[in-house]
Design a protein around this nucleic acid. Structure first.
Length: 199
DNA sequence: CAAGTGATTAGC
DNA sequence: CTAATCACTTGC
């Protein structure tokens, strides 16, 4: 399959790109194990300057979030709670610091490697959360800033979803964001067991 | 349900 | 410089 082109990431309609990410295949090749991949089943949009929940709220620009300003089609990886990496996809043109957090994937290729990295457990617990899937895919700070049109990580077409298969709700873990916490910016595949917190 | 963990940030 | 915080997960 072909990598999604740069154009896919350049729209300023971040919520639309977030919905379109559902059903795409996220691929992270491994030197020895080959392709490790999963279908995206849950995402959250972060709308830059105007969004209290975003790292780039109010135009905040630091060493950590610098890649959010570098243009769509790059990966923003950051570290939280002293243990977990979070994988985001930067969208829009340069200087438009929006991003989409990947919160859940359904394993497709390389599930053996995921078990090695995560430990033996129920498959639905392997990748049903942003911290979990980063471990399963081997995503660390080394991938921060990686280009999704190159060879370290990318997206492919995989499954096309009907509108009625997609659910929308509030984002998770951002209660500090006040009224922005109420925004309907979390999207997931209805009934999929790899969604972190089904509703 | 609460602890764990350390980079990052804001505030002096 | 120091202290508080955090796009989470796991095990009690």
């Amino acid at each position: 399959m072909r990598k999604l082109p740069r154009e896919f990431y350049l729209s300023k309609n971040t919520a639309k790109i977030a919905r379109d990410l559902l059903g795409k295949l996220l691929v992270v090749p491994d030197d020895t194990a080959g392709r490790v991949s999963g279908m995206i089943v849950e995402v959250e949009a972060y709308l830059g300057q105007a969004d209290r929940a975003a790292h780039s709220f109010g135009g905040r620009r630091t060493a950590r979030n610098e890649v959010m300003y570098g243009g769509g089609g790059h990966v923003y990886v950051f570290f939280v709670y002293g243990m977990y990496y979070q994988l985001n996809i930067v969208t829009g043109p340069a200087e438009h610091p929006h991003a989409i957090l990947i919160r859940g994937i359904e394993p497709v290729e390389g599930i053996e490697v995921m078990w090695e990295r995560r430990g033996k457990m129920k498959d639905t617990n392997l990748t049903s959360g942003p911290g979990k899937l980063a471990i399963a895919l081997g995503v660390t700070h080394e991938l921060n800033g990686a280009d999704l049109t190159r060879k370290h990580i990318w997206l492919e077409e995989y499954r096309s979803l009907e509108k009625k298969e997609i659910k929308v709700g509030k984002r998770i873990g951002i209660d500090y964001a006040g009224e922005d916490a109420e925004k309907q910016l979390r999207f997931w595949v209805k009934g999929n067991p790899f969604v972190s917190k089904p509703v």
